[in-house]
Amino acid sequence: MVTRRNFLDRLLALGFVSTAVSILYPVWRYIIPPAAAEPATDSVIAGKIAEFKPNTGALVKFGTKPAILVRTSDGQFKAFNAVCTHLECTVQYKAETSQIWCACHNGLYDLSGSVVSGPPPRPLEVFKVNLRGEPGQEDVVISRA
């Protein structure tokens, strides 16, 4: 027959074990974490609008990959995945011709991301650019289209 004292002792032991598990399990998962996939980045703030002069390009960290933000001569913003579709080199902006250029194999893209010449098999992935904030102080926000 279970006495009241025994019952309370067992209840207390169960409480201790549960508490220990609830402390140790997170510790265990912290020490040996599950192999997690790279979290997808959907949006980044590239900087303030004044940081980007017309007819320039800037590389921006977009998750673990680079994005290229181009401000055209007429002040528009355009953004693309900066990974060349040929052999994954990082592309750059060529101000002289207003094109996006991959130095590795001379791939050229226009400012809609389409291949102009060279070996890239596909256009660059186009990102969306939005301006957010007070006029003159807007953040340039790049996000997946």
Partner: peptide
């Protein structure tokens, strides 16, 4: 990264190293 550290900059830098290999 698997141990929970933010290594985004380093991953980007390694892409640049791979660019140099291609170049």
């Amino acid at each position: 990264e698997n141990a929970g550290m933010e290594m985004g900059e380093q991953s980007l830098a390694l892409r640049e190293a791979a660019n140099q290999l291609t170049l």
